[in-house]
Design a protein around this nucleic acid. Structure first.
Length: 595
RNA sequence: GGGGGUGUAGCUCAGUUGGUUAGAGCGAUCGCCUGUCACGCGAUAGGUCGAGGGUUCGAGUCCCUUCACUCCCGCCA
């Protein structure tokens, strides 16, 4: 028999009546009636009420004992009288009368209470993370994370994927985010980098002929944190498959996500596989984003032509259009009763986001014809209104918001406005998971700061163009076999069919200024690997943290992470990062520069 | 690197236009209480008002600097 317990704290029922049991756990809550003391004993599994009467030595000890102390009790399971049953507890029909007691570990006064679920400042929670994690919500979130990971792992193995570990100490990659560096003692002055992702390794696993690989992989990127992005490290379901095209990857991954979200959905509906597929171009137009939230029933339209025509007399926009600006329209149903301040506030908000403003008209039907209300309503002819109604699918009582700006800004602001308006009008159905694939990303983008062409995503993606045609087109128009999986406006995965042809690889890199020699040097492993018989392959890497966030319905990644860093990348519990001793620095041939 | 928010008792928060000794609830401690499950009642202790500087007869309150946490922009192939 186990030394500490015969049952856990959520196990005992009426059928155990009169049995003597042994329980261990934390003193969750005490209710002291002077001559009668109730203790809620808590462990990972639940709560059990324990009772002790005055006059025993245990009573005196327990009366003084602080909450969150760990105790072992031996006692008899007794049926509760009808009036004292607690329906909120699975063990609420019984209680334990304590006959024997051992204090296993005493708690000091708590810096933050475990009982109840109030909000606490982040720094105190992180400093005492082990206490914070005892709270029910955190305990459930972290448990969910564990269950999600084992579900995924089982599923992948079931589907014939093999799980491999790839190096944590590896080489810095010249593309991408800032690396974490680790000095090498045996190679003075040289550094390992922690992997930003096992990208090159997983491709080499394919070259090595293992066919299907996965890993719950830690990824290290030295970038600043956000609510949905830990500074330092995060986890990806890294997967790769040989002899596949985009559709093969999609049809493998879709059921995994559908099943995963079905299992842990907490009653939410899930968009059925196959998920909607939207090209990058279409997504930027209709949703103003490459991670559209499809729960929002608003689609943006381009109405530049209508504003260009003589049917609209809005000179400010016409001037902008002549300078290469475009006009995007955001239709919003049924807002004619909204106050003037609703529209004005949106206009102010748009300005704060970097737009010139957010113009609008509201449509009303008077007799047989439609009129546009609002500050710029008078500039529209009836014909223009009819065209707008048709194009944007609006009618009596609806409004149209307009953004006129350079394409990049117009897209961004229209997308943000779509989300902002949807939030304010509560148009988002919180009870669904809407998945979609975004496909056909451009291979390159133009870097405004450096005034040069750069990769828009993964440099190892297969371009969607033949080698022979590569030089015949504007590089900025070349698409890649690159795709994202998006759910409710959250990018949960990136992936691609990889470029496994060295000749084409050199060509791809040449457009961003890499010579063949340079590619050979910086990606020597990859190029070599692709030169000795590489299978066509592709895969993706869904972010575990964001998946768990969605399933736990949390806005912040720290709520689903056991021991997160602060925004300044510090571990308040362990005190990391720390100074290195002189000894350590000497070993590593390092000197700290004084600031 | 930049912009915003927050910081008052162990915890959550109040604190008026700058004005006497900075308050409440929870928690803690002590006492009372035999059926609670947010038990109840009473008392007591508990404060560098994040830190430093300034303005003022007088600063929790105004100004400057700074620190911590956080949200956002940049960044995140």
């Amino acid at each position: 028999m186990n030394k500490y317990r015969s049952h856990n704290c959520s196990e005992l029922r009426l059928k155990d009546e009169n049995n003597t049991v042994k329980l261990s756990g934390w003193v969750h809550r005490k209710r002291d009636h002077g001559n009668l003391l109730f203790i809620d004993l808590r462990d990972h599994y639940g709560l059990t009420q324990c009772v002790v009467q005055s006059g025993t030595e245990h009573f005196k000890i327990l009366e003084k004992l602080k909450p969150e102390s760990v105790i072992l009790i031996i006692g008899k399971v007794l049926k509760r009288s009808k009036e004292t049953i607690n329906r909120n507890l699975s063990t609420g029909e019984i209680e334990i009368h304590i006959n024997d007691l051992e204090i296993l570990s005493e708690s000091k006064e708590l810096p933050l209470p475990v009982f109840g679920e109030p909000e606490y400042p982040e720094d105190i929670r992180l400093k005492y993370r082990f206490l914070d994690l005892r709270r029910e919500k955190m305990h459930q979130n972290i448990s969910l994370r564990s269950k999600v990971i084992s579900f995924i792992r089982n599923k992948m193995i079931e589907l014939g994927f093999m799980e491999f570990q790839t190096p944590i100490l590896t080489a810095s990659s010249p593309e991408g985010a800032r690396d974490f560096l680790v000095p090498s003692r045996l190679n003075p002055g040289k550094f390992f980098a922690l992997p930003q992702a096992p990208q090159q390794f997983k491709q080499m696993i394919m070259v090595a002929g293992f066919d299907k690989y996965f890993q719950i992989a830690p990824c290290f990127r030295d970038e600043d944190g956000r609510a949905d992005r830990s500074p330092g490290e995060h986890y990806q379901l890294d997967l790769e498959m040989s002899f596949v095209e985009q559709d093969d990857v999609f049809s493998t991954v879709e059921p995994i996500f559908f099943d995963l979200f079905t299992k842990f959905n907490k009653g939410k509906k899930i968009s059925k596989a196959p998920f909607k597929r939207i090209t990058f171009k279409e997504s930027m137009l209709k949703y103003g984003s490459d991670k559209p939230d499809l729960r929002i029933p608003i689609q943006i339209s381009d109405v530049t032509d209508i504003f260009k025509s003589s049917e609209v007399k809005l000179e400010i926009f016409k001037k902008q259009i002549k300078k290469n600006s475009i006009v995007r329209a955001i239709p919003v149903k049924n807002v004619k009763d909204k106050s003037r301040s609703f529209f004005d506030n949106l206009n102010e908000w748009a300005k704060s986001e970097g737009a010139d403003g957010l113009a609008y008209i509201s449509l009303v039907k008077s007799k047989e014809s439609f009129k546009a209300l609002g500050p710029i309503g008078k500039y529209f002819s009836e014909k223009a209104l009819n065209e707008l109604m048709k194009k944007c699918n609006i009618t009596d009582g609806d409004s149209l918001f307009f953004i006129c700006d350079k394409q990049k800004i117009a897209e961004k602001i229209s997308g943000l406005s779509r989300e902002k308006i949807a939030r304010e009008l509560k148009l988002i159905d919180e009870n669904v998971f809407e998945f979609c694939w975004i496909t056909d990303f451009p291979l390159y983008r133009y870097d405004e700061d450096l005034k040069k062409i750069d990769f828009s995503h993964n440099p190892f993606s297969m371009p969607n163009i033949k080698y022979e045609d590569f030089d015949k087109v504007d590089p900025l128009n070349i698409l890649a076999k690159q795709y994202d999986l998006v759910c409710n406006g959250v990018e949960i995965s990136s992936g691609a069919i990889r470029n496994h042809i060295p000749k084409l690889m050199y060509k791809v890199f040449s457009k961003v200024g890499y010579s063949k020699k340079n590619v050979d040097k910086k990606f020597s492993g990859m190029i070599k690997a692709l030169s000795y018989g590489a299978p066509p392959h592709g895969g993706m890497a869904p972010g575990i943290d964001r998946i768990v966030m969605l399933l736990a319905n949390e806005e912040n990644i720290r709520e689903i992470t056991l021991f997160p860093l602060t925004q300044n990348a510090q571990d308040l519990l362990m005190g990391a990062p720390l100074d290195a001793s002189d000894e350590q620095l000497k070993d590593l041939n390092l000197k700290i520069l004084k600031k």
